[in-house]
């Protein structure tokens, strides 16, 4: 049985033209990817977890603690990395560290120097001269140097070039060698998660559609391709969503054995990528209502 590092229960927050309703458990000791299109509610969920936004209703527990009574204890144990630079632009990394470090009781100066060396970051250059990748590394160094147990990242790989993204993901894997640590990572670049995530939570229209182990998902969802003539009212019900072309179709299913019995060799079966799952589920609004 695994413990949850974050528990969101019936969490709701209303904005103009958007409503968030979330139930979500993030497992301790794993990397969880939070995926979804733009405006699905990923950033809002992360802001709620960071207490930057307060919910209208519902409970947020981080490390089993409540923000109302344990705000500082919670944040002491979180490392954060955001997609935009939240650090004062005109300052260099040394000054930023002088502002951030004393906030944490468990700040480890030696560890910080190690990360600075390893990431090859200049301490005396103003942060606005940093490339996007360097800024991300700087954030990560600050997030890791106080022995954080939970790392929360909002779109950390957005705007990074592919080489750098790989390096960054590799880094995260190394960080996870410490088994007590958990990472929550929002992204719309789903291929990143296929490399490193243990769990995937998909958000759509302010709801969490599913939160499953990556393996379960890849065992569960398949893309079926075949001729349009195979589709009729009876066969279509085996699919979550169907895309029709001029005389072929491709569709997402989570009922492979039945599809297999029905169509046999007349269709092509492919493993669905996260992007496929996200795309087809977005097309299938009725699926949203079923869950």
């Amino acid at each position: 049985m695994s413990e949850n590092v974050i528990e969101l229960r019936n969490l709701s927050r209303k904005f103009k033209g958007f409503e968030l309703n979330v139930n979500l458990d993030i497992k301790k000791g794993y990397i969880t990817g939070l995926i979804g299109g733009n405006g699905a509610g990923k950033s809002t969920t992360i802001k709620l977890i960071m207490n930057l936004i307060k919910p209208d209703n519902g409970d947020i527990k981080v490390f089993g603690l409540d923000y109302k009574t344990h705000e500082k204890e919670i944040k002491e144990r979180i490392g954060f990395v955001y997609d935009s630079n939240v650090f004062y632009e005109g300052l260099n990394l040394k000054d930023i560290k002088r502002i951030v470090a004393p906030a944490y009781k468990r700040w480890d100066e030696a560890l910080f120097s190690q990360y600075i060396d390893r990431f090859e970051l200049p301490l005396n250059k103003s942060i606005k001269t940093f490339s996007k990748g360097m800024q991300m590394k700087a954030s990560l160094a600050l997030a890791l140097s106080h022995h954080s147990e939970l790392i929360i990242m909002d779109e950390p790989t957005a705007g990074l070039d592919p080489m750098f993204r790989r390096e960054f993901l590799h880094l995260l894997q190394q960080i996870m060698l410490d088994e007590q640590r958990s990472i929550l990572f929002s992204t719309h670049i789903t291929t990143d998660l296929e490399r490193i995530a243990d769990y995937i939570a998909l958000m759509q229209y302010g709801h969490v559609l599913f939160n499953e182990a990556l393996e379960t998902l890849t065992e569960q969802y398949f893309i079926i391709k075949g001729g349009l003539d195979l589709l009729d009212r009876d066969t279509a019900k085996y699919f979550i969503h169907i895309e029709r072309w001029s005389n072929t179709f491709s569709a997402l299913t989570n009922r492979l054995s039945e599809v297999d019995n029905l169509f046999g060799d007349t269709v092509v079966v492919e493993q669905a990528s996260l992007e496929d799952i996200m795309y087809y589920l977005k097309g299938a609004k009725q699926y949203v209502q079923l869950n």
């Binding site: 207490n51 705000e71 500082k72 204890e73 979180i78 955001y82 939240v86 004062y88 951030v100």
Partner: peptide
């Protein structure tokens, strides 16, 4: 002048301060 920026408030409120 620094603190009116949202970014600064995100930073301060993500650090262990109330």
């Amino acid at each position: 002048a620094y603190d009116e920026k949202t970014q600064t408030n995100i930073l301060l409120n993500s650090l262990p301060y109330t």
